[in-house]
Amino acid sequence: MHTVQAWLKAKQRSWQFKKLKNPKFTHLFTPTIPGRYVCFDCETTGLSPKQDKIISLSAIIIEDNQVLTSQALNLWIKQSQPINAKSIKVHRIRNADLTHHHNVMNEQEAISQFLKFIEGATLVGYFLEFDVAMINQVIKPWLGVNLPHPQIEVSKLYYAQQLAKQSPGVYQGDIDLRFKVMLNQLQIPNFAQHDAFSDALMTALMFIKLNKYLQP
């Protein structure tokens, strides 16, 4: 089964490579480096990958079971539209904050840096599907491809860990996959949710504790 899955992934990757519009981004298809992970998180204008935009993005390298915070990537992206009040209540980022930020970039410039940063890495995240969809919303029309990198969802690892603790054949209730609950169960401090860097860091620390549950 694993051989078939690997073959299908390789075929899909090859097909995507042929769709790449810009040869400057062939590094997207660098072979995956074993043991190299990048945990990332986005703060956005809302929860719709089709309509909303990335405001800030942080990515942290994990190598040799260590979180390399000194090599973190932190990006702030210019917004052409007002950030709505509901999202401001969540991440506390206003248009004015971006206007005065010393390192704010346009969307393609910021995402270009991110794409180079994740070269050869496996992506890690909490509800990673959403963050990947936000990136794909930018790069699909621009480069013709979606992110081809392998992806690991930490809530699945946590679920596997909690399931392994349960007695066989005994139903012990649903497993709570809320971020705060996972942090508490794994004894990881809650630094400050809804900040891209803090969320990426906390998720990376969860991954370190859970990666023995990775499927081969």
Rank of each mutant, 00 (worst) to 15 (best):
G46R: 06
K116T: 03
A59K: 05
L57E: 05
L8Y: 10
I62V: 15
E129I: 03
P141N: 04
Q16E: 13
W15A: 10
I135D: 04
V38P: 10
M1R: 08
W15Y: 08
T44H: 06
A110V: 06
D64I: 02
I188A: 05
V138G: 05
V132A: 08
E119F: 10
L210S: 12
H100E: 08
K50Q: 13
H102D: 12
A6R: 11
Q193E: 11
H102G: 00
L143Q: 04
G173Y: 04
I62T: 10
P82Q: 07
V154Q: 01
H91G: 07
I135C: 06
L157G: 10
Q193V: 07
Q187K: 14
A133L: 03
Q162S: 11
P216V: 07
T30V: 08
H91Q: 12
M182K: 14
V124G: 05
I33H: 04
K140Y: 14
I54V: 15
T26M: 03
C42S: 05
L98S: 11
L68W: 00
Y158C: 09
R13L: 13
Y171E: 02
T99Y: 02
T30C: 10
I60D: 07
K89S: 15
Q51H: 12
N146L: 07
T69G: 00
Q215V: 07
T99V: 06
I77K: 03
K18T: 05
Y126E: 00
W142G: 11
K21M: 09
I62W: 08
H101Y: 07
Q187H: 14
V90Y: 10
I77V: 14
Q193P: 01
T44G: 10
F29R: 00
A196M: 05
K86C: 02
K11S: 07
L98Y: 11
K24E: 13
L123E: 08
I208E: 09
Q187Y: 06
Q81F: 04
L75K: 09
M206E: 09
T99M: 03
I55V: 15
I111E: 03
D176I: 00
L183E: 00
F197N: 06
Q12S: 05
L8N: 10
I61E: 14
N184I: 03
M202N: 05
L75G: 03
V154I: 02
A96G: 02
A96F: 13
